[in-house]
Amino acid sequence: MRELRREHMLNALLAAALFAVPLWAYLVDEPFLITLATRVAILAMAGVGLNLALGLGGMVSFGHAVYFGLGGYCAGVLAHHAFNATPVLMGLDGTNQMLVIWLVAMALSGLLAAMIGALSLRTSGIFFIMITLAFAQMFFYFALSWPAYGGEDGLPIYVRNVFPGLNTMRPWNMFVIAFVMLMLVLALFAMIRASRFGAALMAIRQNADRVAAVGISPFGVKLAGFVISGMITGLAGAMMADLTRFVSPSMMAWQMSGELIVIIILGGTGRLFGPVVGAAILVGFEVIFGGLTEHWKFWLGLVLLSVVLFARGGFIGLLAGKERHG
């Protein structure tokens, strides 16, 4: 229980730090730092999505970048058509409204996750990893060879999409949107984990047959978890496209899927604020060591190796103890 309280306190501290750093940057007029914090919040959100599938359900998806990229393309394509005043398809217009784009991104990501999950969740272990990777690579190569939306060059979003009542071109406003959405997604994760559905999802990770013996369809629960996970990652993708005002096939590449897994392992698999810590470390390494050497990923790899070997609960586990609750 003491460890549980320690993790709650640590989580509160992390949330406060994630808000305080860009607030300070806003006060001293350092927009770069605000954008960096926004990137951490959005990557963390994508990580929370994967954490639901991987951390709670034990589904090691090596293709979650497909939902991240699909969300990004939803934002890019809808904004592109709104900007050019051309219909997306069959008379449907584009839009520059973030809220609408998020809904579309979540709906399409959920649909794609349902289709991929329905096929891939019939397998497990290495086969599941490979099938999810294969699906993501299929979509990656499709985006690469889709000239209508920039193909390999990607698709710029000329003017950042709009949010009711806020000027999204201001870095601080964009950060506040990302931070609030991250907190909402974290609250959803905590609610799911405390629910009967979450308990079943965690139990399936241990033994699906035993879960079936208490009247739960393991496949149904895993599929539902996988779909919710895909939707959250898709939402993060749409927000990332808006932050960078650019979407490209690299958002769907296997390296992105790998980065999401790295984020979770670094922070602590299944831990509520694990993805927040993981995303902060990843972005921090990229900024600090990326400026010193182009081989910064080598050093990140060493950290990852140390975490896997010596701190299986990630940095949250290291600081808050072994208990997975929090």
């Binding site: 629910s195 308990a199 079943a200 965690m202 241990q206 033994n207 879960v211 208490v214």
Partner: peptide, 18 residues
């Protein structure tokens, strides 16, 4: 027995609730 070892007692119970 075969309880879900890493789940808490309450989680073991609510997972099965009908």
């Amino acid at each position: 027995r075969r309880c879900f070892a890493s789940l808490t007692v309450t989680e073991n119970l609510i997972a099965a609730a009908r």
